[in-house]
């Protein structure tokens, strides 16, 4: 196993905040460590490891976060998560037999929509990925993809016809990614869909989808079902990629222009020395 290196000092989701009620106790695995997640009567969440030692804890973006290391920074901010009028939806977690980095990379990919999410997020012959912008924002040390657009037959539960959906992607941490997309009922706003991933080990993870939407009409179960359908389609891919870990050597896989976000993500991981869940042979 690769040493957890700098990865152990990141924040990872260990519970859905709303599911951790006062007096509740949940046991979760984070990077092969067993953690005990509890909430006391005063509402304070606590995380302890299998030696009984208290681990860092914070609550943000609908989840309780912890770490097996010592995070040098507070968790990334997500202002839309507290914006008035947004409906916050917990969808996860889904367990995936794949590297958490593969899960994040797949979330950043649009070219698979017509083939994996056929007639929902994409459909032939609308397969072209138009040029878009990608940058590693040094000031915040995040990967951003902007001006992404794609034709979608049914972009969201609230969409009834095909539309060209516009996207922005943000990777604030190696195992967290956020998507901003056209909001059919509120053209001036962007819906937010986030994926927060907890590695159980380098090749197994729990992915928590979390949404902050302007949609007061769609039934909760339909919103969750839509996201589950999409994610389970992705899982059938993720569990059949070889190797399970994400290759960081650019010679191991053959990207094309549509993969600019993934190329930047891999380069950013390499630059940070984030190797947990990565295939580092050849690097």
């Amino acid at each position: 196993m690769t040493s957890p290196d700098i990865a152990q000092d990141d924040w990872y989701p260990v519970a859905i905040a709303a599911m951790l009620t006062a007096g509740a106790e949940q046991r979760v695995t984070l990077m092969s460590h067993t953690l005990r997640v509890t909430r006391d009567a005063a509402g304070k969440a606590t995380v302890t490891d299998d030696h009984g030692t208290a681990r860092p804890v914070c609550e943000a973006h609908g989840h309780v976060w912890s770490s097996i290391g010592t995070p040098p920074h507070p968790i990334f901010s997500l202002p839309e998560g507290v914006q008035d009028g947004r409906r916050l939806v917990d969808c996860g977690p889904v367990r995936v037999k794949a590297s958490p980095l593969r899960v994040v990379e797949n979330f950043l990919d649009i070219a698979h929509f017509p083939f994996v999410h056929t007639d929902i997020l994409g459909a032939e012959p609308h397969t072209v990925v138009a040029p878009y912008d990608v940058e590693i924002r040094d000031t915040v040390d995040e990967v951003w993809a902007t001006k992404v657009s794609f034709y979608q037959p049914q972009a969201a539960k609230s969409a009834s016809d095909g539309i060209v959906t516009e996207y922005e992607y943000r990777v604030p941490a190696p195992c967290a990614t956020i998507l901003y997309k056209t909001c059919p009922p509120r053209p001036a706003e962007m819906d937010v869909i986030a994926l927060f991933v907890r590695p159980l080990n380098e090749e197994l993870c729990d992915a928590y989808a979390w949404m902050a939407l302007f949609d007061d009409d769609t039934a909760l179960e339909d919103l969750i079902q839509f996201q589950q359908t999409i994610f389970l389609q992705d899982r059938s891919i993720l569990e059949n990629q070889v190797p399970r870990k994400l290759p960081l050597d650019p010679r191991m896989e053959s990207p094309t222009r549509a993969d600019k976000t993934s190329i930047a993500y891999r380069r950013w991981l390499k630059r940070r020395g984030y190797h947990y869940g990565a295939e580092t042979r050849g690097v």
């Binding site: 070219a111 698979h112 017509p114 083939f115 994996v116 032939e124 397969t127 059938s236 891919i237 059949n240 990629q241 070889v242 190797p243 290759p247 896989e253 053959s254 990207p255 094309t256 549509a258």
Partner: peptide
């Protein structure tokens, strides 16, 4: 070779094998 997906999950059209991930 693109993203490591198993081609046995793919589909055939005409005389070409299509990868299920990105076609």
């Amino acid at each position: 070779p693109h993203r490591g997906m198993r081609l046995s999950f793919g589909f055939v059209r005409g005389n070409r094998l299509n990868c299920i991930y990105h076609g």
